[in-house]
Design a protein around this nucleic acid. Structure first.
Lengths: 186, 186
DNA sequence: CCGGGCATGTAACGCGTTACATGATTCG
DNA sequence: CGAATCATGTAACGCGTTACATGCCCGG
């Protein structure tokens, strides 16, 4: 779907498809390098893409356009979530408050970098003003909302982690003198 | 890491590990069913988990605890993004504004459901108040921030999509009378 | 003329999912 | 006693990533 979509914008070589996916769709999609050419070969065999002659860029056929619209209309299957950062924070007691704070600082920095990248992309996209621009802005906005949410979350969580533990060990020890049971038996 | 982490909370059967991952870590982690038992077998062979006897629940060994902390301390490798919704919206012109609006409505509804689910989880977690509670709240908060961001984005994008096109075809046609070039050649 | 980017592949390997298979226990 | 749930596995298959391999072309 991504390859057909890239070729729907303009004919291009496989190499350019890869760069387009990385540079344009990069903030929400990725294709591994060794995936592009087998995909293009399969698409060519099914006559969804064509090369005018050998060494010409790939271009979409009429059937390819139809197929792209079919694929886009299919419901997006949700991918099972796998967030390593959250897993580490959830078991943060094993890791210690210091390491958790570092994870949150890293996440915050990454969100800020992402916002900067997206701002740069936005400047480029906003200057184009083609028929695809509104849609590009929608996906861009999603990235920005997500990054801002991550930023706010990281700051809020850093504050929470500092506030509830003055020393590093406070979270590891029981801070309720009268309570000896730890939640281990639930 | 997820399996060791689950067992670090309490000894349990493989079946219970699966349910714990689904129910407790579900909003940021998942393990396929057929993954649990091979993993437990491998962990048992490496003496990171043990069963008191056959048909007893698995429990973490001392080495298993050490290994868990090692794994948690490893840097989280980022997964290449693959967001099917964004891909569809990016090529939204092929799909048509109506279908895009439906995608956004679905995304909005899903974000609202997610917020409701997380609110229910929050009620349970907040009532516990164990040593792991602050960390559980951090991951929970991340889910809430993300869901609220998705909700706001969907509403904002729906408004943008309605505002810029009074009829369904407006986005497909050129709305700038004097401009014939389309961005296809970039 | 030589190094780096353009361009096109391939092959191995691993991981994870899906589906299948089986028995025990519990509850109505 | 039958159905549903608990519980433990296995095997096939596919997908995708990583790494490797090769040649062209252009600019310094």
């Amino acid at each position: 779907m991504a390859v057909l979509g890239a070729l729907s914008v303009a004919p291009m070589t496989g190499y350019a498809v890869r760069e387009a996916i990385r540079d344009v769709l990069g903030h929400f999609w990725s294709e591994s390098f060794g995936q592009i050419y087998p995909t293009l070969a399969a698409l060519e065999e099914r006559e969804l893409v064509r090369r005018a002659d050998r060494a010409a860029p790939y271009e979409l056929t009429a059937r390819g356009e139809v197929r792209l619209r079919e694929l886009l209309a299919e419901p997006a299957q949700r991918v099972p979530p796998r967030n390593g950062l959250m897993l580490r924070l959830f078991f943060g007691r094993q890791l210690g408050p210091d390491a958790c704070r570092q994870l949150l600082l890293d996440a915050k920095a990454e969100a800020e970098e992402q916002l900067a990248r997206l701002a740069a992309v936005r400047a480029v996209v906003a200057a184009e003003d083609g028929p695809d621009t509104p849609y590009a802005l929608i996906t861009l906005s999603a990235g920005e909302h997500t990054a801002r949410a991550a930023l706010a979350w990281a700051e809020e969580s850093l504050a929470a982690l500092l506030g509830s533990s003055e020393s590093d060990a406070a979270l590891s020890r029981a801070d309720r003198p009268g309570a000896a049971q730890s939640g281990e038996e639930s």
